[in-house]
Amino acid sequence: MPVRVERRAFALLCHLVEHRNRVVPGEELVAAAWSGEPATNAALATALRAVRLAIGDDGRRQAFIRTVHRRGYQFVAQAKAVTGAVSTVQAAVAPGPADRAVDDTTAGLRDSIRFCRTADGTRIAWAATGKGPPLVKTANWLSRIDLERTMAFARHWFEGLTEGRQLIRYDERGCGLSDADSGFTMDEWVEDLDAVADAAGHDRFPLLGVSQGGPLAIAYAARRPERVSRLILNAAYVRGRLARARGATENAEAALDLRLSLAGWYGDDRSFQRFFGGQFFAGRPPEQWDEFTTYQKRTATSANGARFLEAQSRMDVADLATQVACPTLITHSCDDPRVPMSEAIELADLIPDSRLVILDGRNHLLTGDEPAWHGFLAEMRAFLAEEN
């Protein structure tokens, strides 16, 4: 089955296979894949993860590509040269037309990436993964659905959310594979979700909102009660940081947070970028913060990233939360570094038929090796089982 990968990731794989008799330094891989252009260690790590995902390897097992500490990388699986094989492989990984397919051989899952149009004509990229009853996930922060499964901080979400279900996700307007020149309002984000649900052929479905996707999920459930059967919220909030600020001190802190985040987005100063990444993964090493911020910069332009940050900081769905009529599960890490637990408590107070579960975690976005992740999955699966 053909597996599509980015050009640089494919160049890395070819170089490693060609020089499989030795350890290849990272600098040499960058020179081979980036054709002399500068690249960060995080960019190299991201490309290597994409290669490993494409060939069924991972950073722990290393059955194909071995990491040699402080020296580089080596292709260690058995390989056999076949005449004409290069042109065949290149054809298999060439960019496709409107629909794209990505195989994950380790999880046995396949992405089918498609495109649909909203009522105002905006093109939205969406994907279906897995089989079974649907679970629709709202877009949150910034995404690129053709890349996110290659990222270590995101891969476990697919393995967990697709167990016995078909996961529907998408890139909201302004980022990823969706149209970049679009508005940044709640009404338009609701249109995006309408278009994706229609294209996927689902009239009624459970809806998951994570982080910034939480306010959108709340707004959609309130405005489209006939479509949302159950609502799951994780690390969500009622109001963005500027919207919930009270008094001079909180307003100054919220404004400073936004300025520092924007400085990291627009520039290359790693200290600013790590400030932002650390708010999402406080319980992880700085290398994971770097991976997260590097990935984000590949999802949207600096201008759009700034517009997203500004719009999200001013979100307020307090009135809409009181109108949610479906059963709702709210989960939140007790030491979330970006969104305080008070937001989850307020959500539980505002949404009539809701239950709140506090998770034992320190990260805003759950990582696969923390107790909070396994607690979230158990609570979500039990909650969705009640629908049957």
Score class of each variant (00 low, 15 high):
residue 235 A to E: 13
residue 230 R to G: 05
residue 273 Q to C: 11
residue 220 Y to Q: 09
residue 243 A to N: 01
residue 262 L to P: 00
residue 202 H to N: 01
residue 211 S to I: 07
residue 170 Y to I: 07
residue 142 L to G: 06
residue 148 E to Q: 12
residue 208 L to E: 08
residue 176 G to P: 01
residue 163 E to D: 15
residue 220 Y to K: 11
residue 272 F to A: 13
residue 262 L to Y: 00
residue 206 P to W: 11
residue 240 G to C: 04
residue 179 D to M: 04
residue 226 E to L: 12
residue 178 S to V: 00
residue 238 V to A: 13
residue 237 Y to K: 01
residue 148 E to Y: 05
residue 274 R to T: 05
residue 221 A to Q: 08
residue 228 V to K: 06
residue 197 A to R: 03
residue 156 H to L: 07
residue 210 V to K: 02
residue 154 A to S: 14
residue 217 A to Q: 09
residue 271 S to D: 08
residue 222 A to N: 05
residue 184 F to T: 11
residue 274 R to V: 05
residue 186 M to F: 09
residue 237 Y to G: 02
residue 273 Q to D: 04
residue 188 E to N: 05
residue 145 I to A: 07
residue 206 P to Y: 10
residue 210 V to E: 12
residue 223 R to S: 13
residue 233 L to E: 02
residue 255 A to S: 15
residue 249 T to L: 14
residue 210 V to A: 08
residue 199 A to R: 13
residue 271 S to R: 14
residue 184 F to E: 07
residue 166 Q to T: 14
residue 256 L to E: 13
residue 271 S to E: 10
residue 235 A to S: 15
residue 177 L to T: 00
residue 149 R to C: 02
residue 243 A to F: 01
residue 233 L to M: 09
residue 246 R to A: 14
residue 254 A to M: 07
residue 230 R to W: 07
residue 236 A to C: 06
residue 201 G to M: 11
residue 193 L to G: 03
residue 204 R to F: 02
residue 270 R to I: 14
residue 269 D to P: 10
residue 213 G to A: 09
residue 229 S to F: 08
residue 147 L to T: 06
residue 237 Y to F: 15
residue 225 P to L: 04
residue 228 V to P: 11
residue 185 T to G: 12
residue 272 F to S: 06
residue 160 G to M: 12
residue 272 F to L: 10
residue 197 A to V: 05
residue 201 G to E: 06
residue 200 A to W: 13
residue 226 E to P: 07
residue 181 D to R: 14
residue 246 R to Q: 14
residue 165 R to D: 00
residue 168 I to M: 04
residue 263 A to C: 09
residue 247 G to Q: 05
residue 274 R to E: 15
residue 231 L to W: 08
residue 150 T to I: 00
residue 145 I to F: 04
residue 172 E to H: 13
residue 207 L to K: 04
residue 209 G to A: 04
residue 207 L to D: 02
residue 262 L to T: 10
residue 192 D to F: 11
residue 210 V to G: 00
residue 240 G to K: 01
residue 200 A to P: 07
residue 223 R to H: 11
residue 146 D to K: 11
residue 145 I to G: 10
residue 216 L to G: 04
residue 201 G to V: 06
residue 194 D to L: 13
residue 201 G to Y: 12
residue 154 A to Q: 14
residue 161 L to D: 00
residue 225 P to G: 02
residue 193 L to C: 13
residue 189 W to H: 13
residue 261 S to F: 04
residue 261 S to T: 15
residue 248 A to D: 11
residue 259 R to S: 15
residue 172 E to P: 06
residue 223 R to M: 08
residue 162 T to L: 02
residue 213 G to E: 05
residue 250 E to R: 12
residue 196 V to R: 05
residue 180 A to I: 06
residue 230 R to E: 09
residue 228 V to G: 05
residue 230 R to C: 03
residue 155 R to E: 09
residue 144 R to H: 06
residue 147 L to W: 12
residue 153 F to K: 00
residue 212 Q to H: 03
residue 176 G to C: 03
residue 196 V to G: 02
residue 270 R to T: 12
residue 163 E to N: 12
residue 223 R to T: 13
residue 240 G to R: 00
